[in-house]
């Protein structure tokens, strides 16, 4: 962002452009609004150069962030201890991992702030955890779904009343 502001104010730092401009010195020269074709071309060229610089700086910036993304690891437990096989998935993507024997995991992809990790395990409530700038280790405690197990079977044996038995 800095480049965008400083460059137009100091055209002299761009040597080539500067020298060319000197050769065709004009009294009513008001950069960058000079509409004379020759000058327009130059201003346009300069604008392109500026755009490229800005874009390039942007993409480098983005690259740096993903290279330095957050590497997340952690442990998943329930009230009795570590849980093996808990599924951890990045919300909106298919990348994920599962916990080992000790309930430990390391997420295989570097994450960004506001990424959401979804923890699922059959019999437990699903948990979603949002990554922040400071997240490095996650200690997740899974809560058992509060349901009671019941069972009634489907049968097609005809009903028999006690009276007709």
């Amino acid at each position: 962002m800095k480049k965008q502001v400083t460059l137009p104010q100091k055209p002299s730092s761009e040597n080539k452009l500067d020298t060319k401009q000197k050769k065709t010195q004009k009294t009513n020269y008001h950069w960058p609004f000079d509409l004379e074709t020759k000058h327009l071309k130059k201003s346009f060229g300069f604008a392109i150069l500026l755009l490229i610089t800005v874009l390039a700086s942007h993409s480098t910036h983005a690259q740096v962030q993903s290279n330095q993304g957050l590497s997340i690891s952690g442990t998943v437990t329930d009230n009795e201890g570590p849980l093996l096989g808990v599924n951890i998935i990045l919300k909106g993507a298919e990348v994920g991992t599962t916990t080992d024997n000790n309930g430990n995991f390391t997420f295989p992809k570097a994450l960004k702030p506001n990424d959401v990790l979804v923890f699922t395990y059959l019999g437990y409530e699903t948990q979603e955890i949002t990554i922040t700038q400071n997240t490095t280790r996650l200690n997740v405690v899974m809560v058992i779904d509060s349901i009671a197990i019941r069972g009634a079977l489907e049968v097609d044996t005809p009903y028999k009343s006690k009276r007709t038995e």
């Binding site: 349901i147 069972g151 009634a152 049968v155 044996t157 005809p158």
Partner: peptide
Amino acid sequence: RTSTTDIDKLHVPNHS
């Protein structure tokens, strides 16, 4: 409730 359910013993929920 099915054909084999004993309704006299249907005191607590038995199905989901």
